[in-house]
Write a protein that binds this DNA or RNA. Sequence first.
DNA 1: TGTACATCAGTGAACGCGCGTTCACTGATGTAC
DNA 2: TGTACATCAGTGAACGCGCGTTCACTGATGTAC
Lengths: 245, 245
Amino acid sequence: MADRAPTARELARESVHASILAAARARLTEEGPSQLSLRAVARDVGMVSSAVYRYFPSRDDLLTALLIADYDELGAAVEAADAAAGPGAGARWVAVCRAIRTWSLAHPGDFALLFGSPVPGYAAPRETVEPASRTTLTIVRVVADAQGASASAPAGRHGSPVPPTAAPGVVGTAVADGVASLHAFGLDLPEEVLLRALMAWTTVFGVISFELFGHYVGSVSDGAAYFDEVIARLADDLGFAADFG
Amino acid sequence: MADRAPTARELARESVHASILAAARARLTEEGPSQLSLRAVARDVGMVSSAVYRYFPSRDDLLTALLIADYDELGAAVEAADAAAGPGAGARWVAVCRAIRTWSLAHPGDFALLFGSPVPGYAAPRETVEPASRTTLTIVRVVADAQGASASAPAGRHGSPVPPTAAPGVVGTAVADGVASLHAFGLDLPEEVLLRALMAWTTVFGVISFELFGHYVGSVSDGAAYFDEVIARLADDLGFAADFG
DNA sequence: TGTACATCAGTGAACGCGCGTTCACTGATGTAC
DNA sequence: TGTACATCAGTGAACGCGCGTTCACTGATGTAC
């Protein structure tokens, strides 16, 4: 019941568990998640495949653990970038977006696991939803703060938060669920702003996906420069100016 | 040498070839491309697996044929939607975007093949590049036409094509390759416009991808309505008004 | 038009492979007296 | 502190599976005389 000193067995178990996860993550750097085999991971870690079952009841559980670890790592990186950035929303926006791209390029297999085509025969369980939302929430928070800040700023191109749309009035129920979820996090945003924030996040994802999977070949030569151009315009569309420091 | 009447053998060959492709496409509706096995396709078509080798030298060649067929089908659907839409760029924009979404939702496996995580161990050959560009080109063409039209339109929210960005002047080389490619198609666009068009296409893809792969669960309830909201704002950002008829 | 030979689509068995998972085992670590 | 038993991590063999691909075959279709 009380806190005992961990036994040698417990320490060893913890360490092997971590080694298996690490080996799986290392594999993901080179190959897609659907390729990821329990036997290969066991081989990498230097144990027999059946031994892995002492730590993960099945391959699906390994995938779930990976999914959570990845979402958390990405979320932590994004949150850290946000915290480390200057106080202005423009600087935070750039830091957050770049952090997402940097992590994704460094972990293409993990990116595919999180955001690519679903792994055949695997359905992500509930437990993955919360860590998954960390990144989205950080983005929404930056946008929300930018809105608050610019509400009391002088008028001009960036004076009015989120310009009105060409086909207004129908936002209606489209993101109602999203607004409701945000309340659970203590955020209260106009639907228009949430929709714009969601759009921006979607674009950031799309750009990274296209870059990573080779769909910009022939159109975009310098991925990093292009990405900066894109997030500058996204900030613009959100009613504030990106700040590249 | 000259045009002979096709022999029974030739007709049969043509027909079996088509059946195999059709069976493979049908499988894609239900399962991911990495799952797609030559043996399963052969089974569906009612022949022994080795017989497929009379038609496709390997599984990779089957995948390539599928890729081309899919890109062409999507491209044709998008071009048809463009042609069928009213003459205004706003109406064409809506028609084209909706066509992309409609096709994608109806063919999730094909969408994953075209735009999802790369199939492990398979690299798409050159022949797929041209059919792949049909969709992108249609979008760029609509945007280009909208620019031309609005250049002589009265000023206002949609009077000035593509508003200036918050961090201008650096577009520079980011999409230089794209501009060069466009010349081959007789299109000459300012870099800013091309960049905005590329961004919009990326967002459309991102929205469909998120919807299809379940990343909007909890945020977006009505995918179709949300999609329309998004493309209305994209048109807005491109300097014209979406026209939903 | 009729026959002899060549072409080629489809068959069925076989190959070697890697996979997820189960199971009885051995030997080291931990616990109770 | 020392011994007897329980726990449990890791082993190694085995299961059944589906895969891509090869190969010698048979029988129907096409071609040359």
